[in-house]
Design a protein around this nucleic acid. Sequence first.
DNA 1: GTCTATACTGCGATAGAC
DNA 2: GTCTATCGCAGTATAGAC
Lengths: 197, 197
Amino acid sequence: MTASSVMSVRRLQVREIVLDSALYLFAQKGYFNTSIPDIVRHSGVSTGSIYHHFSDKLEIARAMYERHVAQMERLISDIEQYHQQAEARCREIILALFALTEKEPMVMAYMLHARHQEFMPDAAPICSSRPFLRMREVVVSGMRNGEIRQMDAMLAAVCVFGGALKFIQFHLDGILEKSLSEYFDELWSTAWASVRA
Amino acid sequence: MTASSVMSVRRLQVREIVLDSALYLFAQKGYFNTSIPDIVRHSGVSTGSIYHHFSDKLEIARAMYERHVAQMERLISDIEQYHQQAEARCREIILALFALTEKEPMVMAYMLHARHQEFMPDAAPICSSRPFLRMREVVVSGMRNGEIRQMDAMLAAVCVFGGALKFIQFHLDGILEKSLSEYFDELWSTAWASVRA
DNA sequence: GTCTATACTGCGATAGAC
DNA sequence: GTCTATCGCAGTATAGAC
């Protein structure tokens, strides 16, 4: 292993440590309630080092956003590869989002809850981000191949995924009596019934 | 008119002016991006005067939240008074929310979009606020009187109102091609079909 | 009750030693 | 590349005249 590859591995490590701390703190208290000193304390990385790896606080938020948009896109790509029907794809996407919510609630909290536009001036609303656009494309293709009845595309997407996303929000807000997965069957059958051809 | 009643009318006026400015600014830029000097500039009321009427910046946010929670509750009460069936009540509530969104988008932006818990430490999530609890009660009563089929109460509420609320969010985010009201018919028939007995 | 001027704090960001 | 020390400033809140 060369010296430069050691350095770049280490470089990645520090970035990841900072991003993990920032995810925890941003998801828990929000971007504005999290100071650089907070991140220093929680991550154990010094101010100077943080600013060596990130140009400013905003870039931390941006890098984290990109990291988790990519994570969600990968999740959808995997599903599209293994399932061909829109019905199966939608179903599996919801199951994967539920699993992600229970395994890494902070990721979902940051992606769904945070008002990214308040601190990332050029960010699109989350519903226009790549993972959500791809979810809508899955629904549109289902409409083209006759699995889903002809209807407004946006409405169809809301019918299929809207309920699941609301339940994820409820779960993160702690107002659900049961675990997310216990709601899945009834939720999915109701959602799919409202759009199937 | 007595001197004290003049004073209290004026007192209310100043509070309203400040709250109106704060609504505009909070809805547009968010709570944390809005400084007291911003409110001073936009409202024309001086710092000293603002602090005479509100103990701190947080209390402005709280008072505004209460004002619009009450406004939405009144809207629901009026509908409950004039309509007895759950179906009509739900329908009219959605129509009223759409109308409010188009007439006073900032109210809906502040109520639905803002992450109130980030700056109001003791606030419940918006979905647990009184207007949203009452909307769920309407659905539950519709389930009791047989208009809505037996199903998980939370799921039923999401089916009835979730789509409309998502479309309001889309509208506020500016990603809708048509006006809100043009989506209503298809949205409502789909939503109600998914829950009716 | 309303204003102007200002005190105080805590944050984001930088400098510079190691 | 990482650290500690610190600068400059924006922003909340107050003091005190009118």
